[in-house]
Design a protein around this nucleic acid. Sequence first.
DNA 1: CCAAAAGTGTTTGGTGTACACCCATGC
DNA 2: GCATGGGTGTACACCAAACACTTTTGG
Lengths: 251, 251
Amino acid sequence: MSEFLDTAAERYHPGLSVDCVIFGFHENELKVLLLKMKHTAKWALPGGFVEKQEHMDKAAIRVLEKRTGLADIFLQQFHTFGDPARHDHEMDLELFKQSGRDPVKDHWFLQRFITVGYYALIEFSKANPRPDDISEACEWKSIDQLPAMILDHRKILEKALDTLRFQINYQPIGHKLLPVKFTMPELQKLYETILGKELDRRNFQRKMLAYGILKDLGERRKGGAHKAPYLYSFDVKKYNAALKIGLKGSW
Amino acid sequence: MSEFLDTAAERYHPGLSVDCVIFGFHENELKVLLLKMKHTAKWALPGGFVEKQEHMDKAAIRVLEKRTGLADIFLQQFHTFGDPARHDHEMDLELFKQSGRDPVKDHWFLQRFITVGYYALIEFSKANPRPDDISEACEWKSIDQLPAMILDHRKILEKALDTLRFQINYQPIGHKLLPVKFTMPELQKLYETILGKELDRRNFQRKMLAYGILKDLGERRKGGAHKAPYLYSFDVKKYNAALKIGLKGSW
DNA sequence: CCAAAAGTGTTTGGTGTACACCCATGC
DNA sequence: GCATGGGTGTACACCAAACACTTTTGG
């Protein structure tokens, strides 16, 4: 941390950060990946800084991998947060102290920051998040039970969720959030979770199949109680083609 | 300009700018407001910098007013451009020379910039754009006949247009772009222009009226040739309520 | 009176919605 | 066998697309 404070001003673009909202879906709940920094009580979105000659989008990818171990994630920019009040000077000073140093006036780290928000959808089961060396935890948190978060990270998360809902017909939500094989009820639960409302089982199925973006694998999911549901997977080619013009219809 | 280069580093947030894409509608064409700086051949979006403790959204409003004279414009953030290649070092050096100064290494102005794009819809007839003292022109340009533009401003403009099309059912497009009183054919032309395709006259009218967001003023637009069309204006309250859930239907 | 623009209406097919019924499985 | 969850089907209302006809106005 101490070394970071020394070299940051040379390495990074001043007053600019990126924050990532990583969505996953597990046990019928929409989850977000959060970090807990050492010595702090609140949680944070995985975020970081942009190198001086680095593409901002690339920076987001690098930062996410460094802080959570997640690689090859397709991140989507959704909003930039430029309220000067979003800066928490007290917290900065605290971090300085913890690194065993005196706050320096006009230090790179103590100025106001603009942050650019990115979001991603990832397959929960494939993700293997691990905290970096300045964090003590990296965990999935349910959207419905979020812990206290630093700065305006809660607001950033809400905005990401709004964007997700808004773009539901234009983003490969199912393909990114579900395993390769999934059942129709699972897909429906995902939609219901994101949209925050219940959908009719039969109409959902008909509509989804009508899109022609699903491949019926013929298999069934065994083991569970009740009637075994069919397994599907996405016809990626057709899915992407359909998304370009947007999946029709209101949910 | 010379004074600007001296004081900029103190006043403004480093490496950050805002650019505004101002849409207007006139003579059945969608137009954009562009500036032409003195001593340059290319046109530019009205843009500027963010003061150190200023809210970014407020900065966009301030910048727009200062550079074009347009006040009280509702600006909507749409994307942030963070490609390091978007910076044109040659152009910067040129501007330095023109201000009669030698380029200083590591000068505030010579670093890489991130820019945040904002767009607005304004009523063409009410706007009275005027160039600021560093520009020689401030003009409406048709979307179909854009002049050469600096940096990635063309790309920024395209992105704004995409956003506009995407959000057409969620933004008060008509209310912002048209005069208070307008006819149905005028409103239709606006939609056709933004969407880039023709719509059926009768279906358009029925659909619009069905939304219940228009007030029939009873009057007719006289003077023109042919049958005089009725005048309408927006029922702003109902319009805004309808936009919250989005105007249904595909165009 | 004629061309062009604008107002009004009708038919038709699709899509969303609200249902009812049957099938499979574990307890 | 019964509760629960999953698969399939149907009736209806509504909306969008495609179309024809009438009215007004300036030239």
